[in-house]
Design a protein around this nucleic acid. Structure first.
Length: 892
RNA sequence: GGGCGGAUAGCUCAGGUGGGAGAGCGCAGCCCUUACAAGGCUGAGGUCACAGGUUCGAGCCCUGUUCCGCCUACCA
C-alpha cells in the first residue's frame, strides 16, 4: 500500500533518473515517425531559473511529452546563451571584489576567466530545468559559443558581408557609458520622465539680438555646429545664413534651414549637435557641418568641452545651466515630459554617440520575414501579436551588431596593416573570412590585426534553430527537424529574438525556422507588478517546487496560461493544485485497497456494465477529445481545467462514491467488472495528466502496475477517444439520477437535517424517468441516506413535506415537525428565481420578431424551457398554498 | 505621438463562430460517512467599467468616454 499522502520530494529525482537511463528523451535519427521539434529559448548562463522560465519550460514540456506519447519522433533541444554583456558584467563584478579589472588581466586572461566562471556556474540553470521535469534531449545540448555554433556565426557574417548586407561605418549609435559598448536600438529601454526644456539664447555675431533655441540637453551645446530653422518659417526668414555665437565657448556657427525642424515645437529653432544626436547627425550630413565630439566613452567631457573638460556629463549639465544663467542667456525653462533611454543590462542612461560600428542592412531580410507571416507559413499564436510584429518589421532600421566587449563571438574581420598594393588599399585592408587568415589575401602581408569587437549576442541566437542542428553542415538532424514545429516564448523577446530567427532562417535555410510561434504571458505578482529582484516580489520557482512539488507547480502554470493575458501569480493557487494531486494520489489508494479485496476481472462488454461505469467511460471519452483538442490549439488552461473538473467532480465526487456500493456489496463478478472499469479509466486519466504532472503520474502508473509491456508512462500512447466506449443513454440517465440525488440533498442541506437522520422520499415523475430511477435506486439511497424511496406518476405530495423540483421530477421528503416557516421561505425564494426567468421567456416568446427571425432551434429550446418553468412554478405555487394552509391550522 | 490589451462574484481569473452568467480560493451552515478534513454535502454572493448604437436577442459586434497595464517612437 502506498503512503497516505503524496510526498513529491521522495520520488521526483528518482523518476527523472529513470527517464534519463531509459533514454526516453532522445530523438531518433532516421526515424519513420513524424518529427516534432522544439528548440528551447536558451537561458542566459548568468541566470538562475525564474518563474518566467518555469512557465516557458512547463508549456514546452507539456507539448513535447504530449507529442512524444502521440507517436512523434520528438526533439526538445536544450541549451544556454553566452549572454555577452550580462555575463561580462557578472565576471567583472567578481574581479572588482578581488581588486582587479579586465584590463589588468588582458583580453585572453579575462576570457579564460569567464570560461572558468561558465564551467562553474553555467550548469546551474540546466540542473534547474531538469528539476522542473523538462524532457529535453540532453545529448544534443548546445551553448551559443560552442565550436559548431561559432562556425555558423562566422559563416553567416561572411555571407551577409559578401552579399552587401553587412557594412561598417560611422554613425550615431546608442552607447552605454558604463558597459562601454554600443547597443542596438532594441537594447535601449525607454522610460518616460518629467524633464525640463531649456530655452537658450544664441546672440548674433553681428551684435543685433539673438535667436532662442529649446533643448532638453543643454550640455550638448558645446558640440553645436549650427542652429537650424524650418525653411518655411516666416519668423526666421531673414535669419537663415547669419552667424550666431555659441554661448560660453564663443564659437561662430551658422543658422541654417532644414525641413526636419518642426516650427511648432519650442521656439522653432533647434541647436544642431551632429556628434551627439541622431537627427542632428542627419542634418549635418545634409549641410556638410563639422562633427564635434564633446564626450568620451565614459560619459566625460573631452578637450572640446573647454572649461568643462573632464567633468561627468551630468555634472557638466548643471554647471552649464549655472553659467548660462550668469551670462543671462538662459531665457526660461519649462517642465517637459520625455522618454529617456536606459541600458537594458545595467540601467545606465545611454548616450547617443558617434562611432564606427558594424551594421546589418535588415530591410531585405525583414521583407521576407513579413511575407512568411503574412502568407501563413508561420502562425503567431495568439494572432494579436502579428500586428506588433508587422509594425516593427515594417519600420525596422539597420541593426548595430558590434559590441565593444570581450565575451562573445569575435567579429571575423581582419585588417591588413601594410596595404602593400593597389588591391589591398582599394579594399582598405579589410579581410572578412570564416577561417583565421595567416596572410593578407591582397598583398600577402603577415601583419594582420583582428577587429576588436564582438557580435551582439542576439546575432548568434538568431541562428539557434539551425546552428544547433549542425548548420552549415547538412546533417541528418537538420534534414529531420528543420523547420522546427513550434517556438514557445514570451512576448518580451518577440523582436529581439523571434523576428531575427525568422529573418536568418529564411535567408540561410530558405525556409521558416518554425511553423508556429506560441507567445505566452508574462508573470506578474498578485498586485500586477512585474517581478523584479529590486522590488523583492519575485516568486522563486525552486521554492514552489520544494514546498508544493513540481507537479503541482507545473499544473498551476498550465492552468494559468490562458492566451493573451498576463498572469497574476498567487501562491494560493499552487496550494489548491497540490490538493488536487493529493486527490489523485488518493484515488490510487482507493484502487489498491479495493483491489486487494476484490481482484480484477477482464473483458467486460460496455453494455453489461452498471450505469455509473457506462457513464464514466463515456465522459472520459469526451475528456480525451477535449484534452487533445485543447492542446492542439495551445489552450493549456482549458486542457488543465477539463482534466481537473473530470477527476475531481466526476470521477471522485460521483463515480467513486457510487461504485462503493458495488465494491462493498455485490457479487464477485460484479466487483471484478467495476475494478476493471475503474482501472481502465484511471490508467487513461493518468496518461492524459502525464504531460502536466509527469512525476506523480509515473509513480502511480507503476504503483498500480499499469506498466505491462511499456516501461514508462512517458512513452505510453497518448489516449485517443477510441479507447473508450460511448453511451449517450448513460449520460442522459446518469443526469436523471444525479438530479434526483442533488434534489434530495438540497432539501437535507437547506433544512439542516442531521446526516444520520434516515429519511423517506417520494418522487413524482413520468414512467420513463421512474424506470431509470428505480433501476438505480441503490445509488440514490446510498448517496442521500434515504431509507426508502417511492416513485410513481400518481404520487401525492404528503402534508408536512419539503419539496424540490427537478426536470420532470417532483421530490418530496415528508418530515415530522417540518419547520413550515423555513420551507415557505425556501419555496418562496425558489419561486422568485423561477418567475424572473419565466417572465424573460414569456417576453421573448410573445415577441413576433423573435419567432420569425431567430433560428428554429433556438425558438424550440425556449418553448421547451417555457413549458418546463411554467410547470415548475405551478408545482411550487401549489406547494406554497398548502404550506400556508398548514401554517394557519398549526397556529393558535 | 502611434498601437495593443484589460475592466465579469470579496480576491484571482475562465467565458473559440451573439441565443441558459462560470471556476478556484475565500465566506456561511452541516458533517471526522471505512481514498482523501489537503476531505464531503448544501448554500449566499454579479446593473459583465460607463454612455450610446447594430440586432428579434449583446459579457461577446460597432462608436465614444473613464480608469489601468503594456509595446513602440529621431519633436529638440
Amino acid at each position: 500500500m502506498i503512503d497516505k499522502g503524496y510526498d513529491p520530494g521522495k520520488i521526483e529525482g528518482r523518476w527523472y533518473d529513470y527517464w534519463l537511463e531509459g533514454g526516453y528523451f532522445r530523438a531518433e535519427t532516421g526515424s519513420e515517425r513524424p518529427p516534432y521539434c522544439i528548440v528551447i529559448p536558451p537561458p542566459n548562463i548568468t541566470g538562475s531559473l525564474h518563474i518566467g522560465h518555469a512557465l516557458d519550460v512547463t508549456l514546452q514540456d507539456i507539448l513535447i511529452r504530449w507529442k512524444r506519447m502521440s507517436g512523434f519522433n520528438t526533439l526538445w533541444l536544450p541549451g544556454t546563451d553566452h549572454a555577452g554583456i550580462a555575463t561580462q558584467n557578472v565576471v567583472e563584478r567578481e574581479l572588482q571584489k578581488e581588486g582587479l579589472d579586465r584590463h589588468t588581466l588582458g583580453r585572453e586572461g579575462f576570457i579564460k576567466r569567464v570560461w572558468e566562471w561558465k564551467e562553474r556556474y553555467g550548469g546551474e540553470i540546466i540542473k534547474q530545468l531538469k528539476s522542473m521535469g523538462a524532457s529535453c534531449d540532453w545529448s544534443r545540448e548546445r551553448f551559443t559559443l560552442d565550436e559548431g555554433l561559432s562556425r555558423a556565426v562566422r559563416e553567416v557574417f561572411v555571407r551577409l558581408y559578401n552579399d552587401g548586407l553587412i557594412y561598417r561605418g560611422d554613425y550615431i549609435i546608442n552607447w552605454c557609458p558604463r558597459c562601454h559598448t554600443a547597443l542596438s536600438d532594441l537594447e535601449v529601454e525607454h522610460e518616460e520622465r518629467e524633464g525640463r526644456l531649456y530655452y537658450i539664447r544664441y546672440r548674433f555675431a553681428d551684435g543685433g539680438g539673438h535667436i532662442t533655441v529649446a533643448t532638453t540637453r543643454p550640455e550638448t551645446l558645446l558640440g553645436d555646429t549650427a542652429v537650424a530653422v524650418n525653411p518655411e518659417d516666416e519668423r526666421y526668414k531673414g535669419v537663415v545664413g547669419k552667424t550666431v555665437v555659441l554661448p560660453i565657448l564663443g564659437r561662430h556657427i551658422p543658422v541654417i534651414a532644414d525641413a526636419y525642424v518642426d516650427s511648432s515645437f519650442g521656439t522653432g529653432a533647434v541647436k544642431v549637435t551632429p556628434a551627439h544626436d541622431p537627427n542632428d547627425f542627419e542634418i549635418a550630413r545634409r549641410h556638410d557641418l563639422p562633427f564635434v565630439k564633446i564626450m568620451d566613452g565614459e560619459g566625460r567631457m573631452t578637450d572640446e568641452a573647454g572649461p568643462y573638460k573632464g567633468q561627468d556629463r551630468f555634472e557638466c549639465r548643471s554647471r552649464i545651466i549655472d553659467d548660462l544663467k550668469e551670462d543671462g542667456l538662459l531665457e526660461k525653462t519649462e517642465p517637459h515630459r520625455m522618454a529617456i533611454g536606459h541600458c537594458y543590462r545595467c540601467k545606465t542612461i545611454v548616450e547617443p554617440y558617434l562611432s564606427e560600428q558594424w551594421f546589418v542592412r535588415v530591410r531585405p531580410l525583414a521583407d521576407e520575414a513579413i511575407k512568411a507571416v503574412r502568407d501563413g507559413r508561420i502562425r503567431i499564436i495568439p494572432s494579436g501579436w502579428e500586428n506588433s510584429y508587422f509594425d516593427w518589421m515594417e519600420n525596422i532600421k539597420d541593426w548595430c551588431i558590434s559590441r565593444q566587449i570581450w565575451w562573445g563571438h569575435r567579429i571575423p574581420v581582419w585588417y591588413c596593416e601594410d596595404l602593400q598594393n593597389e588591391e589591398c588599399r582599394g579594399k582598405k585592408g579589410v579581410i572578412v573570412s570564416v577561417e583565421t587568415p595567416n596572410r593578407c589575401p591582397y598583398c600577402g602581408s603577415a601583419r594582420l590585426r583582428q577587429d576588436d569587437d564582438v557580435l551582439d549576442t542576439w546575432f548568434s541566437s538568431a541562428l539557434w534553430p539551425f546552428s544547433t542542428l549542425g548548420w552549415p553542415d547538412e546533417t541528418e538532424d537538420l534534414r529531420t527537424f528543420y523547420p522546427t514545429s513550434v517556438l514557445v516564448t514570451g512576448f518580451d523577446i518577440l523582436f529581439f529574438w523571434v523576428a531575427r530567427m525568422i529573418m536568418m532562417g529564411l535567408r540561410f535555410m530558405n525556409d521558416v525556422p518554425f511553423r508556429d510561434v506560441y507567445i505566452h504571458a508574462l508573470i506578474r505578482d498578485e498586485e500586477g507588478q512585474k517581478m523584479s529582484k529590486s522590488k523583492g516580489n519575485v516568486v522563486d520557482p525552486l521554492e514552489m517546487t520544494r514546498v508544493y512539488g513540481t507537479d503541482a507547480f507545473r499544473f498551476t502554470l498550465a492552468a494559468y496560461a490562458a492566451q493573451g493575458r498576463d498572469i497574476r501569480f498567487s501562491e494560493k493557487r499552487v496550494e489548491g493544485y497540490r490538493h488536487f494531486i493529493n486527490k489523485i494520489w488518493n484515488v490510487a489508494r482507493f484502487i489498491l485497497m479495493n483491489q486487494d479485496r476484490t481482484g480484477v476481472s477482464k473483458g467486460h462488454e460496455m453494455r453489461s456494465l452498471s450505469l455509473p461505469n457506462r457513464w464514466i467511460i463515456s465522459r472520459l471519452r469526451s475528456v480525451i477529445e477535449e484534452t487533445n483538442r485543447a492542446l492542439e490549439e495551445y489552450r493549456f488552461n482549458e486542457a488543465a481545467g477539463c482534466l481537473y473538473q473530470f477527476v475531481w467532480h466526476e470521477l471522485c465526487d460521483w463515480y467513486l462514491e457510487m461504485i462503493k456500493l458495488e465494491l462493498y456489496g455485490g457479487d464477485e463478478e460484479r466487483r471484478g467488472a467495476v475494478m476493471a472499469t475503474l482501472n481502465h479509466v484511471f490508467e487513461i486519466t493518468l496518461c492524459l495528466l502525464h504531460p502536466f504532472m509527469p512525476f506523480v503520474t509515473e509513480e502511480l502508473w507503476h504503483g498500480l502496475s499499469y506498466n505491462t509491456g511499456v516501461s514508462s508512462i512517458c512513452i505510453r500512447r497518448y489516449p485517443v477517444p477510441d479507447e473508450c466506449g460511448y453511451d449517450e443513454g448513460a449520460l442522459r440517465d446518469m443526469q436523471t439520477v444525479m438530479d434526483a440525488i442533488t434534489g434530495i440533498r438540497s432539501i437535507r442541506g437547506e433544512l439542516n437535517l442531521q446526516p444520520s437522520l434516515e429519511i423517506g422520499v417520494k418522487i413524482k415523475t413520468d414512467d420513463a424517468t421512474g424506470r431509470v430511477l428505480n433501476e438505480n435506486m441503490m445509488y440514490i439511497k446510498r448517496l442521500t441516506r434515504a431509507r426508502d424511496v417511492e416513485i410513481g406518476r400518481d404520487i401525492e405530495a404528503p402534508e408536512d413535506s419539503a419539496t424540490a423540483v427537478r426536470p420532470s421530477m417532483e421530490i418530496f421528503v415528508p418530515l415530522e415537525g417540518l419547520d413550515i416557516g423555513a420551507e415557505i421561505e425556501r419555496m418562496t425564494k425558489e419561486l422568485e428565481r423561477l418567475r424572473e426567468r419565466f417572465s424573460l421567456l414569456e417576453r421573448k416568446l410573445s415577441n413576433e420578431d423573435f419567432i420569425r427571425k431567430a433560428p428554429e432551434r433556438v425558438v424550440e429550446e425556449n418553448r421547451l424551457k417555457y413549458r418546463e418553468f411554467k410547470e415548475k412554478i405551478k408545482i411550487i405555487e401549489d406547494k406554497l398554498e398548502r404550506l400556508r394552509g398548514l401554517q394557519r391550522s398549526h397556529s393558535p
